[in-house]
């Protein structure tokens, strides 16, 4: 009897969470949230979902294509750069979100990164944010010409491409978890 009422209470609590979560999604106008394991198979599913949604909402073609391109780079950045599980891995899930504000579409990704990978990534993000359209074009051309294939799996060229398609400054954050790992969050806007 006691167990049954505990169970009921727990259920009610989780239902409250769901309605709170639902309310939050409505307020922030979130179209898609995925949290968990990322793979190319999953990426394809998320891309197909988004494409259908944008088509049904008659999003302008160029905007839709820019969003698709940015999403591919963000998702593959997560799925290709999984941190190896060494036991010290704090096991924080990766997240991808797609939302809406009055002026922009907003794409957010968040994933674990080894602390030693942060400096080159941060340099690239700051470099990209300091450049105008022409500067980004030149940087993209140079980086692509000089990249080796081990680098294309890194965020180097992807970040430049994202910045070119977004046409807005990239917002990012690194939050240190422990001596080895941090969480890297990236927020990209695309004007409607």
């Amino acid at each position: 009897m006691e167990n049954a009422s505990k169970k009921l209470l727990a259920n009610q609590k989780s239902l409250t969470h769901i309605s709170e979560f639902h309310q939050l999604m409505d307020e922030k106008d979130i179209m898609l949230v995925y949290c968990g394991e990322f793979s190319q198979e999953l990426n394809k599913t998320l891309l197909a979902f988004t494409e259908r949604k944008f088509k049904s909402e008659n999003v302008e073609d160029n905007t839709r294509r820019k969003m698709f391109n940015i999403m591919v780079e963000m998702l593959q950045n997560i799925s290709k750069n999984k941190v190896e599980n060494t036991g010290e891995d704090p096991g924080i899930s990766s997240v991808f979100m797609l939302g809406n504000s009055s002026d922009d579409y907003v794409l957010i990704s968040s994933n674990m990164i080894r602390n030693d990978k942060i400096p080159p990534l941060k340099n690239r993000l700051d470099e990209v944010n300091s450049l105008d359209k022409e500067g980004l074009k030149q940087l993209y051309k140079d980086a692509r010409l000089n990249a080796t294939f081990s680098e294309t799996s890194g965020a180097g060229i992807g970040i430049i491409d994202i910045a070119r398609k977004s046409e807005q400054k990239l917002e990012y954050n690194f939050e240190e978890i422990n001596d080895t790992y941090s969480v890297f969050s990236l927020l990209i806007k695309v004007s409607k």
Partner: peptide, 12 residues
């Protein structure tokens, strides 16, 4: 129709 940045390097 679409290509990712890794493909862009390979096309080059």
């Amino acid at each position: 129709e679409y290509f990712n940045t890794a493909s862009s390097k390979l096309i080059l």
